[in-house]
Amino acid sequence: NLSILEAFQDLKDKLNKPFFMEIIILGSWAIWISRNNKIFEHINPSFEGWKFIYLEELKLLRYRMKKKHHPNEESWKESML
């Protein structure tokens, strides 16, 4: 049984990206937006809906990211499609 810290470290090692925490936070944020859409907009959540929100949020993250990480972000994002 992994502790939460061990689980995060394992995920960090698997992602092997300098922006791994942003990946996790944006994934959680997309879940939160999907939940709010269900409650306030009566839009049923789906994986495709979550993925759309997540990828849109990743586009915005690029503005805050150092240019040297852009190729990493692009290749990682394309692997999600």
Rank of each mutant, 00 (worst) to 15 (best):
N1M: 14
N1V: 12
N1H: 11
L2E: 09
L2C: 11
I4Q: 11
I4D: 10
L5S: 15
E6W: 02
E6R: 11
Q9C: 12
Q9V: 13
L11M: 12
L11E: 08
D13E: 15
K14T: 07
N16C: 03
F20Q: 03
E22N: 09
E22T: 00
I25C: 01
L26S: 05
S28M: 12
W29D: 08
W29G: 03
A30E: 04
A30Y: 02
W32D: 10
W32R: 10
S34Y: 05
S34N: 07
N36P: 00
N37I: 00
N37V: 01
N37E: 14
F40G: 01
H42L: 09
N44V: 12
N44D: 15
N44H: 11
P45D: 02
P45L: 06
F47A: 07
G49Y: 05
F52M: 13
I53M: 09
I53K: 07
L55H: 07
E56A: 08
E57I: 11
L58A: 02
L58Q: 03
L58I: 09
L58R: 04
L60H: 10
L61C: 06
L61R: 04
L61F: 14
M65S: 07
K68I: 15
K68V: 15
K68Q: 15
H69K: 02
P71Y: 05
P71W: 04
N72R: 09
E73I: 15
S75R: 15
W76I: 02
K77R: 15
E78I: 11
S79Q: 13
M80K: 15
M80L: 15
L81T: 13
L81W: 12
